[in-house]
Design a protein around this nucleic acid. Structure first.
Lengths: 138, 138
DNA sequence: AGTTGACCTAGAGCCGCCTCTAGGGGCTAG
DNA sequence: CTAGCCCCTAGAGGCGGCTCTAGGTCAACT
């Protein structure tokens, strides 16, 4: 049991383990790889199975956060490309990240405006429901 | 010019005008109507053209906010149905709105966590870019 | 020897939400 | 009269982002 667990030094994770740790599905992981969303090529076991390293999990976790905040896959891919190219393009990475940061800010602003309206509606309905209850009581 | 403008009392808006005011496309407006996202049926001019009232614009503006905060169309439709049925189902509307309110809260929380990471990344790259600049200067 | 289970590839399919097309009507200005 | 514009319906198409299928490999338990 606990098969294919190279047991020390460089752990070497299966796609299933990575899925569990990142919250992405196995399918999504393969899909992301095809889309070029991996800073380093995945090693392969004899037999063709993917062998992930800890840093892949870290990278993918960053990607999950970027996705969760609405960064489109093409942008994540562009960022990944920059990272894969190594040091020297920090300005470009900065541009990408700043742009995303602004979008997230806007998103948060819009969301909180929406939240205000929704809260208002909730209050209105709470009042109405309460008054209906009192009417019954009389 | 300024054709088909019944000029007083009940304005009567064309689909194009509603599109402009709500920010929705003409296509989207027809689509929403088919989907039952209109509290009151739209009147039709002789010739079959839709004639919207001010309250439709108001309702659609609410829907735009709900959409912007991620409420799925089926939920908006359910809410619309409740509103169309008239008073008496405020508890149900409240349930719907509260559920959405919670989702929006979660969304905001996740977004602000993401924002922290993104801001961190931005800071890191700012530093690196700055240091690279200094290195050049030396 | 057979069964299980995690993995593989290539590609099709799906969901949500529009967006666009085809084909047509009708008003108004020039 | 015709050009331009906005409108109509029904239904196809597109996009983003996965998700699933078919058909197969391989290693491990029973």
């Amino acid at each position: 049991m606990l098969a294919r667990m190279p047991d020390s030094a460089a752990p070497g994770l299966t796609i299933g383990q990575v899925a569990e740790r990142t919250g992405l599905s196995v399918h999504a992981l393969r899909f992301y790889e095809r889309e070029g969303i991996l800073a380093h090529p995945v090693r392969r076991e004899a037999g063709g199975r993917r062998v992930y390293a800890e840093r892949d999990v870290e990278w993918l976790s960053v990607c999950v956060v970027l996705r969760a905040s609405g960064m489109p896959l093409p942008d994540i891919r562009a960022y990944t490309d920059l990272v894969r190219q190594g040091p020297g393009n920090e300005e470009q990475r900065l541009v990408l990240m700043r742009r995303h940061q602004e979008r997230v800010q806007e998103q948060m602003a819009r969301l909180s405006e929406s939240y205000d309206l929704i809260s208002y509606k909730v209050r209105v309905y709470e009042d109405r429901v309460e008054q209906a209850g009192e009417a019954h009581a009389c």
